[in-house]
């Protein structure tokens, strides 16, 4: 059943509606667990559109296996998605800074308030992101270390390549995931791919993980594929490689490549002089878990991340 969670009149002739699709058993007993899938907080991240579609498609194909409630909110920032911009158009405010929102606030805060209120009471929530325009990310879970113990059993089922645990002291409040966890709704964030694109392989991989979590929660009775082991990485397992020059980045490695310390990852070139400004070397041995997708760089631009060590679940 499709419901409107937020409705705001726009300036000329349109109404902004944030919708959800509730999928529930035909004959509920009142004790069903509820999972929420939210996506599209950033208007340039389309990976979640595919994931939401694919989850609904698979449920409808085997509806008899649904024994809990699945609330799918595909597009929390519909205006941003229509305008192909990351933030809320007009105010250009980052929607993921506005939670818990305010009933008496401006459009973004008002929307954030109503979305949060609608999700409260759920047993689990997955906030589905892609990366931004600049960086390609491997399928991963992001969570804070203060909720690591609570979320890890779910994260290990998610079929992601990596689970990245951040120190909670570095996380700003105001994000949907942070505010939900604070209010007792278990929530993690997933990232994969990059902005403006859909990577179906990543999407299918994570949809398998969503069904595994649903099965674990008693929401899904159908079969689920075998789930891969994820690398569990804490902040000191992730090495950032930033450019120290400006120009065009030409990578020599691919996502998931295993690199040794000193290997060349790529170089930054000066186009007008035809010269190499900087050769980028791997500072450590590890796996490429993020790689710059947008070629233009400036001093400080993030070129890649390498995950080292990490506790494997294997």
């Amino acid at each position: 059943m499709i419901e409107t969670v937020v409705s705001v009149n726009l300036m000329v002739g349109e109404v902004l509606k944030i919708k959800k699709n509730r999928l529930a058993p035909d004959f509920p007993n009142g004790n069903e667990k509820r999972i929420c899938l939210v996506s599209g907080i950033y208007g340039d991240e389309l990976q979640g559109q595919y994931i939401c579609y694919e989850v609904i498609r698979r449920i409808k194909k085997e509806y008899h296996n649904l024994t809990g409630i699945v609330d799918v909110y595909p597009t929390l920032n519909p205006l941003g998605m229509a305008a192909k911009i990351r933030e809320i158009p007009g105010s250009q405010i980052d929607m993921n800074e506005l939670f818990p929102g305010s009933q008496s606030g401006a459009m973004g805060e008002y929307a954030a308030y109503n979305i949060l209120q609608d999700i409260l009471g759920a047993d689990f929530c997955i906030d589905i992101h892609a990366s931004n325009l600049y960086l390609h990310e491997i399928p991963q879970v992001r969570m804070n270390d203060d909720v690591e113990d609570i979320l890890m059993p779910y994260a290990k089922l998610f079929n992601a390549d990596m689970i990245w645990v951040h120190p909670s002291t570095q996380v700003r409040d105001g994000s949907l995931a942070y505010e939900l966890n604070k209010r007792g709704v278990k929530c993690f964030v997933t990232e994969s791919g990059f902005a403006y694109k859909i990577n179906q392989d990543y999407g299918n991989q994570l949809v398998d993980g969503i069904f595994a979590i649903m099965k674990y929660m008693g929401i899904w009775q159908g079969d689920v594929p075998e789930i891969k082991n994820s690398i569990i990485a804490h902040d000191n397992d992730i090495i950032y490689i930033n450019s120290e020059s400006s120009g065009i980045f030409i990578p020599r490695v691919k996502m998931f490549d295993r690199v040794n310390k000193g290997d060349e990852l790529g170089y930054v070139v000066n186009v007008i002089t035809g010269s190499v400004e900087e050769s980028i070397k791997a500072p450590v041995t590890g796996t490429i878990c993020a790689l710059r997708e947008y070629p233009a760089t400036e001093e400080g631009s993030l070129l890649a991340r390498i995950v080292v060590g990490g506790e494997s679940d294997e």
């Binding site: 990351r86 250009q92 980052d94 931004n132 600049y134 950032y240 930033n242 233009a296 400036e298 001093e299 400080g300 631009s301 993030l302």
Partner: peptide, 26 residues
């Protein structure tokens, strides 16, 4: 444009910053 040209980041959301981070953070 309102924000930093190359990545749309906001300098007044980048404090205290990181000398080894992206441009606005630096």
């Amino acid at each position: 444009r309102k924000y930093w040209l190359s990545d749309d980041s906001d300098i007044n959301r980048s404090f205290p910053g990181n000398p080894e981070g992206p441009a606005t953070s630096r």
